[in-house]
Amino acid sequence: MSLLTVENLTAHYGPAQALFGVDLTVDEGEAVALMGRNGMGKSTTVKAICRMIGSEGRLTFDGQDLHRLPSHRAARAGIGLVPEGRRCFRDLTVTENLLAAARRGPWDLPRIEALFPRLAERRRQRAASLSGGEQQMLAIGRALATNPRLLILDEATEGLAPLVRQEIRAAIRQVRDGGMAILIIDKSPRELAEVATRAVILARGRTAWSGPFAELTPDRAEALVGV
């Protein structure tokens, strides 16, 4: 049984329908890429999974119906979200950001600091004073501190310098190799292929294609993702 199952998911923003039938699954320990052009429903799908917006269809996590849970309960059930746009608690220090979110589990502070040595160097610095890449590392670290079973990364390397993107991808691979399931959203198939083994591509609020990365031919990627 899959850890996360999304079947025929629909969602609306007021009167405007944004999702028309998204299907995707993430198995325990698997890394899945969620792709698609801008406005095709990637972030909306993530918000629905995290129960930040209402949705219909099947949405289960570890056998639990997520539609019955408020958003903080979904997070407690084991879904760790790294939201779009490096959203740290700006007025807290690095360590405080991690402590505020921390729950018992293998991902404790030393392990997170080992994953991102730059955070260890800046423990007492306020989040607002960190560079963009460091804030992104902190946002990932904070999600890991909740010890989730599924880590969702929404455009985690968007707008960062290539070297920093590489550093963050390496860290994500390390998390994946540790056995955590990952759902990762990004625009670059080449970079996603380094992390994920399977891809789900959305077009106009529907799952347009899904399968192993190896089967994602350049033509298909061009047609659906536009790269």
């Binding site: 995290c50 930040m52 408020p70 958003s71 903080h72 309960r73 997070a75 407690r76 760790g80 979200l81 939201p83 959203r87 740290c88 608690f89 700006r90 007025d91 807290l92 505020a100 979110a101 729950r103 904070r142 999600a143 501190a145 909740t146």
Partner: peptide, 13 residues
């Protein structure tokens, strides 16, 4: 106080 939505996302009410 700073960001209630982000607190929800880490599993706290």
């Amino acid at each position: 106080r700073q960001a209630p939505a982000r607190v929800l996302a880490v599993g706290l009410s």
